[in-house]
Design a binder for these strands. Structure first.
Lengths: 159, 159
DNA sequence: CAAACAGTTTAGCCTTGGCTAACAATATTG
DNA sequence: CAATATTGTTAGCCAAGGCTAAACTGTTTG
């Protein structure tokens, strides 16, 4: 460590208490995030398919492509994966449907999503912003935090 | 739409107000998330490098690999990208340093991260959980929400 | 000061999740 | 009912972000 350090001055360790977490814990944080990323897209698809079925009665690849702002080819490929994972059933040129497992996942995702969305609104975030943030955040909120968010929202509504 | 619909009954549209958002808005949500994903890892690296420099005086590939729970090869490849993006400077086999742009990004990320972390703690989330959640959430929280979180945390501390 | 160890880089592989272009099937409509 | 429009699929491309194995550099130490 005899290197000249051009960053030596800033950013200064703002708060002494904010030292680096121990390596194992730090590693755990990143690993958890990476893990979430793997399932996140799958969940988004399943959740959207569930919503389309609930609100429209059918879920077509074209709708998904439009709503996700993604090409139909991408959706088609993804549907194959969802099939392999046994989350959806699909006949070519027909609406998609969710398997048992798919429905369970859709409900869980939807519930998560709603809790986060309602929480953000209860906090005072504008609706459009809340929707965007919720979409990104939902996969990274632990059950513990989720429970707290729900409680907060309920309390807010009472007053 | 003459298909038999095995999912017709559930999940029922729980709240009438929770209809699907208009296509453009919906698409915007997903696009924003996809966009965040592209920069997210970069920001994590830069933020971590900044932290290592601040707390340890140097940032070596091996430390990053350990803290991110990722192979050194992966870090090495990533550092090449960060170099191309002119966020870090590196001489082979020497500690990394941040460029101007890198420092700015590190500070912004750090600030974001801290706001989310302190907010979660103020909400009542346990420290270990808050750290994990913050790591995942930080890239998906809009400036608007961030401001609200900060205000909330301050209020909480006053009482 | 040579050998061993630690740290770094490179090469080459894999999967994911995008894309476009070309083709195939279904639906709509003149 | 044929032509056209819409929708879905396939093939083949790309970049990102992982990995292991092997080669190389630098440091430490017997």
């Amino acid at each position: 460590m005899t290197d000249f350090n051009p960053n030596a001055s800033l950013p200064a360790p703002s708060i002494p208490g904010d030292a680096l977490p121990p390596v194992e814990q730090h590693a755990q944080q990143y690993a958890t995030v990476r893990n979430a990323h793997e399932t996140e897209l799958i969940e988004d698809y399943v959740e959207l398919i569930g919503d389309l079925l609930a609100h429209r009665g059918e879920a077509r690849a074209a709708d998904i492509a439009n709503r996700m702002a993604v090409s139909q080819a991408t959706v088609s490929k993804m549907i194959r994966r969802l099939n392999e994972l046994e989350l959806v059933t699909s006949k070519p040129y027909r609406s998609l449907f969710l398997t048992e497992a798919g429905q369970k996942m859709a409900e869980t995702s939807r519930a998560r999503h709603d809790i986060v969305l309602h929480f953000l609104r209860a906090l005072g975030v504008r609706d459009a912003t809340a929707r965007i943030d919720a979409e990104g955040m939902e996969h990274h909120v632990s059950d513990e935090t989720l429970a707290i968010m729900q409680r907060f929202t309920e309390q807010q509504q009472k007053s």
